[in-house]
Simulated scan of single mutants.
Amino acid sequence: MSPDVRRVGPDAAEAVHAVVHAAFAGRPVLDPPADALAEEPATLAAALAPARGLLAEIDGRPVGAALLDPVGPTLYLRRVGVHPDAQDHGVAHALVAAAHEAGAGFTELAVLAREELPATIGFWESLGFRTCSRATPYVELRRPLPTAYDVPDADAMRGLGERLGALLVPGDLVVLSGELGAGKTTFTQGLGAGLGVRGQVTSPTFVIARVHPSLVGGAGLVHVDAYRIGGLEELDDLDLDTSLDGAVTVVEWGTGLAEGLAEHRLEVEISRSVGAETSRDGLDPRVVRLHRR
C-alpha cells in the first residue's frame, strides 16, 4: 500500500519522535552522533509548531517523518527518516513529494546529509538535489522549486488555490496582486475550499473584509479587499490582528499595505500570459507567481 503523507503540528510530536528515533538509530554509528538521536518529544513539538511537520503512514501506522524549516526563500527538510520496518515502500519519495507541495512559494528545497553516508547523498541526488556546499561533517544539497504556474482557466485557478489552501496554517498571510479581473477572488475561492471554510467566498469589495470560519476544526479565512483602503492606518482600523493568529488572512490589492500585518507573507501575483489574448476555445490564460517573503 502507498504511504499517506499529511501535515502535522505539535500534537504529533510523539509519533514523529518514534519514527525519527527508530530511523536514525538504525543507521551506521557516526562520530559525532546524529543530532536527531538527542531529540525528545518536547523539542520536536516546538519545531513542529504551528504545522511544520510531515508524517507518513501506512495502514494508519507512522512510518516516515520530516520537519519543514523555512529559512528565507529556502525550505529545509530536517530529521527526514523512514522506520526501518518500512524501507523500500516508497516512504522517502512520498515525503519529498509532499515537501515539494508544501514548498509552494519558496525558491528551493534544501537538505543536509552526512559525508559518511554516500548512499544517502546519492538518494538526494537521484531526486534532483545538487551539492551546493560542504562543512564537515555535512553536505548541503538543494533542489529548485517552481515559483510560476501556468493557469489556463478559472477551474485551474481554483484548483491551484485549493492545493495551496490545504498547505496553509493559522497565522499565514497571503497578499494578492493583479489587475481587475485577473482572478484574485477565484484564487481565493480555491483557498477557501482547501481550508474547508464555511460560506461562499466572493469579492469583499463592499464590506472590505469577510470572515469564513473553519468547518473542519482548522484555520478560518479572513478575506480582505484593500482596493478602497487609503493606507495602513485604515487597514489597522479593521482590527485584523485579533484574527491573524487563528486564521489565514488573504488581502487582495494588499501590496504596500498589508506587509506589516505579519513578519512573513506569501505574495501571489496574477497576470495574463505574455502576449496572450482570449483564445479561440474561450480560454484566458494566466500566470501565477508565488513568492515567500
Rank of each mutant, 00 (worst) to 15 (best):
S2M: 12
P3T: 10
V5K: 04
V5Y: 06
R6V: 13
A12T: 05
A15Y: 05
A18Y: 06
V19K: 07
G26H: 08
R27N: 07
P33W: 07
A34Q: 14
D35M: 09
A36N: 05
L37D: 08
L37C: 09
L37P: 15
E39I: 03
E40M: 04
T43R: 13
L48F: 00
L55A: 01
A56P: 00
D59Y: 05
G60M: 01
V63C: 04
G64Y: 08
P73C: 05
P73A: 11
T74N: 03
R78S: 06
R78M: 12
G81V: 07
V82T: 14
D85R: 07
D85G: 14
A86T: 06
Q87F: 13
G90C: 07
A94F: 05
A94V: 04
A94I: 04
V96Q: 04
A97T: 12
A98M: 00
A98L: 00
H100Q: 12
H100Y: 15
E101L: 15
A102R: 08
A104C: 03
G105P: 00
F106E: 03
T107A: 03
T107W: 13
T107G: 08
E108K: 02
R114Y: 13
T120I: 06
S126N: 01
S133D: 14
R134G: 10
P137H: 07
Y138H: 11
V139Y: 03
L141T: 11
R142G: 01
R143I: 02
R143A: 02
V151S: 08
P152C: 11
A156K: 00
A156S: 07
L164T: 00
A166E: 09
L168I: 05
V169F: 04
G171C: 12
D172N: 09
S177Y: 06
G183D: 04
T185N: 00
T185E: 00
T185K: 03
L195R: 02
G199S: 07
V201Y: 07
F206Q: 15
R210K: 12
V211Q: 14
H212W: 09
V216R: 15
A219L: 08
G220V: 14
L221K: 01
A226Y: 10
A226M: 11
A226C: 13
Y227N: 02
G230H: 13
G231R: 09
L232T: 14
E234H: 07
L240C: 02
L244S: 03
A247Q: 10
V250E: 02
V251E: 01
T255W: 06
G256Q: 02
G256W: 08
H264I: 06
R265F: 12
S271W: 12
R272F: 14
V274T: 15
T278W: 11
R280W: 10
R289D: 00
R293E: 13
